[in-house]
Amino acid sequence: MTSFQYTVPTDGLTIEHLLREQWEAGKKTVHFMRMSKSVTGVDGEPVEWKFPQKAGTELTFTVPDAHSTYTPEKMNLKVIFEDEHILVVFKPAGIATHPNDSNQTGTLMNYVMAYVKENGGEYAEHIHRLDQGTAGVILIAKHPIAKTLFDRMIERNEIVRKYQAETDGLMKRPKGTINLPIGKDRHQPSKRLVSISGQSAVTHFRVLERKTDTTIVEAELETGRTHQIRVHLAHLGHPVVGDVLYDGSRTKDGYFRLNATALSFTHPLTGEQLNIEQ
């Protein structure tokens, strides 16, 4: 079980409308919460689901089956932002975002799970992911309702994700938008390419600095396809430095120069506008 606090934002809102219509919580979750009377007021008493609440009313929601199965693994974790709904953490280059099977360790989510458990929690799920070679900020949900809300925000492009990349060559265009679909490379499963039969993909970019033979670029995702920035920049003839999969020049440490630098969004559970930077 996981509990969180919520302040009713407007007069007349009912628990049923909030869960079913606004948050679109899963049917199983909604049924359990109603049957177990797991929405309570400040006095600890269950709240009537169809009773209109007043703005400013403090409620406690207790969510069922709120636990994750990642094996906790202790590691220094850089936490950039945290409240009772979400974490924003820094992922170093060279580690995977999450395990590919239940026995895998050494991933960011193993470290996040250890941190969450140390602080009394049982649940942590990533909202998006970064490639193993990419460093930067990742958003984590701390309970299933937050997971549902933020997943929907990602689908609707309501979370602005900014990246900074160092690319090979001197990019002439000061800014632009790359609107080219991305699909799988049938000859190399781990690779993606621009393909008319692929999924739509949109990347906005602008040049921050031109060096001797490389360019520093800020990129903003409108969609979130696998390897999207890497594929789009390589297609322009300016692959990310170190990204040998897409013909980028090699680096001494073997990592490519791509960092997720910032997240911006309106918090769906607090209404706060957040601009979180690495």
Rank of each mutant, 00 (worst) to 15 (best):
G224Y: 02
G224I: 03
G224A: 07
G224E: 04
G224N: 11
R225A: 04
T226S: 12
T226W: 00
T226Y: 03
H227E: 02
Q228I: 01
Q228M: 06
I229A: 09
I229D: 04
I229Q: 06
I229V: 13
I229F: 09
I229L: 09
R230P: 06
V231G: 03
V231S: 08
V231P: 03
H232G: 03
H232I: 04
H232V: 06
H232K: 07
L233Y: 05
L233C: 11
L233M: 15
A234M: 08
H235M: 05
H235L: 01
H235E: 12
H235D: 12
H235Y: 15
H235S: 13
L236F: 04
G237H: 12
G237N: 10
H238M: 09
H238N: 11
P239T: 08
P239N: 11
P239F: 06
P239A: 10
V240W: 00
V240R: 00
V240N: 08
V241L: 14
V241G: 06
V241H: 03
V241C: 10
G242E: 09
D243L: 04
V244M: 14
V244G: 07
V244I: 15
L245E: 15
Y246M: 10
Y246I: 09
Y246P: 11
D247A: 13
D247R: 15
D247T: 15
D247W: 13
D247S: 13
G248Q: 09
G248T: 05
S249Q: 14
S249N: 13
S249C: 10
R250K: 15
T251C: 07
T251S: 11
K252V: 14
K252H: 10
K252L: 14
G254S: 12
G254P: 07
G254I: 03
G254Y: 06
Y255R: 15
Y255K: 14
F256C: 02
F256P: 00
F256E: 01
F256G: 01
F256N: 08
R257M: 07
R257L: 13
R257N: 13
R257C: 15
L258W: 05
L258A: 10
N259S: 12
N259P: 00
A260R: 08
A260Q: 02
A260I: 05
T261G: 01
T261S: 11
T261M: 06
A262Y: 01
L263D: 02
L263H: 09
L263P: 09
S264T: 07
F265Q: 05
F265Y: 14
F265L: 05
F265T: 01
T266C: 02
T266V: 13
T266S: 01
T266F: 00
